[in-house]
């Protein structure tokens, strides 16, 4: 309906936060993020860090899979590339502000190497190439002992700046969360410009994208490399957060975890990346709590945590695809519309 929303000021029309109310909400949200570790206690802070890392990785996969329509199954191993790069550099005296971008860039470069051959071809080849990369790189993590520490992996000294060490969850939270916010903000920006639109165009209609002047192979590659870069960024933070990594840290299941996150959150939605990452971080926690409860009655129940997690992840993927293909982001939008909290409905 055309009410008062006729946009005459195009700068405002193109803005992400269009109304004062939206800006207030956003400021409140940022304040919440800052306050969280102060009021939340240890466990909440731990979860906050984990969510931050997962949000970055999920946002990356969503760029590749949700927005551009390219399935990547080996997202986890790209986190691994970032994590190993950072771990190795940290152990060789490179400061974190250099190590983290390096990890991201190297993961992006690996993405290009995987992407170049497979993206020339249609459809499913990238999925298979990423699957192959998952196994080959995991093998390298395990076997290239002099660099990766073999099966025992690497331990990572804390990130340090001046005399200040990010050596607790509380401290490292303030490393992770700002980066997560910036990463999400950047991915949101992307889809306000021709680059992001080109990604979506490729997803929605391969050939007419070419006719309007989009170099499909180039943009696919850009999208996949960018997703890999986000994964590498998340992986680097992962190394500084857990402070130890092994070849087991980045299994195929983690890649499926991220696929679940974008599907549950909402394919092709930045808000979806956030909601999906939060939701998926909480699922295993809730499952573990439930199983621990069950273990009071029957101690054997603990062995069910991991298979139960797999079943739930799989069921979430299938269930959301069938019943809510636009994910939590769509549910969120519906709730918002229902309560009509906003002066302008979009």
């Amino acid at each position: 309906m055309r009410l008062g929303d006729f946009v005459t000021d195009y700068r405002a029309g193109e803005a992400v936060l269009r109304t004062p109310v939206q800006r207030v909400w956003f400021a409140a949200f940022l304040a919440f993020l800052v306050a969280l570790p102060f009021v939340g206690g240890q466990y909440i802070t731990f979860l906050g860090c984990l969510v931050g890392i997962h949000i970055i990785a999920t946002a990356g996969l969503n760029i590749t899979t949700g927005f551009t329509g390219l399935i990547s199954i080996g997202h986890a191993v790209l986190l691994g590339v970032g994590a190993y790069t950072v771990a190795w550099m940290a152990n060789n005296g490179v400061p974190f502000w250099l190590a983290i971008p390096s990890g991201a860039l190297l993961a992006g470069a690996v993405g290009i190497v995987i992407g170049i051959p497979s993206l020339r071809i249609k459809g499913l080849y990238l999925a298979v190439a990423t699957l192959a990369a998952q196994f080959v790189l995991s093998y390298i993590f395990r076997e290239w002992e002099s660099v990766t520490g073999g099966v025992r992996g690497l331990s990572v000294p804390p990130a340090q700046i001046g005399g200040f060490a990010f050596d607790s969850d509380f401290r490292v939270y303030f490393l992770i969360m700002p980066i997560a916010v910036v990463a999400v903000w950047a991915s949101r920006n992307l889809f306000r410009t021709r680059v992001g639109r080109a990604f979506v165009a490729i997803r929605d209609r391969d050939l007419s994208a070419e006719v309007i002047g989009i170099d499909i192979v180039r943009y696919k590659l850009m999208s996949f490399a960018l997703g890999a870069l986000y994964a590498g960024l998340a992986g680097g933070l992962w190394a500084y957060f857990f402070r130890s990594i092994t070849p087991e840290s980045f299994p195929l299941q983690l890649g499926i975890f991220y696929l679940a996150a974008i599907i549950v959150g909402g394919l092709g939605s930045t808000l979806g990346s956030i909601l999906g990452a939060i939701f998926m971080t909480l699922v295993p926690e809730v499952l573990r709590a439930m199983v621990n409860l069950a273990a009071i009655v029957s101690p054997a129940a603990v062995v069910y945590v991991s298979p139960l997690r797999e079943i739930v992840f799989g069921a979430l993927i299938v269930g959301f695809l069938i019943f809510e293909p636009h994910g939590l982001a769509e549910i969120w939008r519906r709730i918002r519309r229902f309560f009509a909290l906003w002066p302008f409905r979009s």
Binding site: R197, V200, A201, D204, R205, L207, S208, G268
Partner: peptide, 10 residues
């Protein structure tokens, strides 16, 4: 051959 997931403006 429009991009179905996008708005008219996009």
């Amino acid at each position: 051959a429009l991009f179905r997931g996008l708005t008219v403006v996009d």
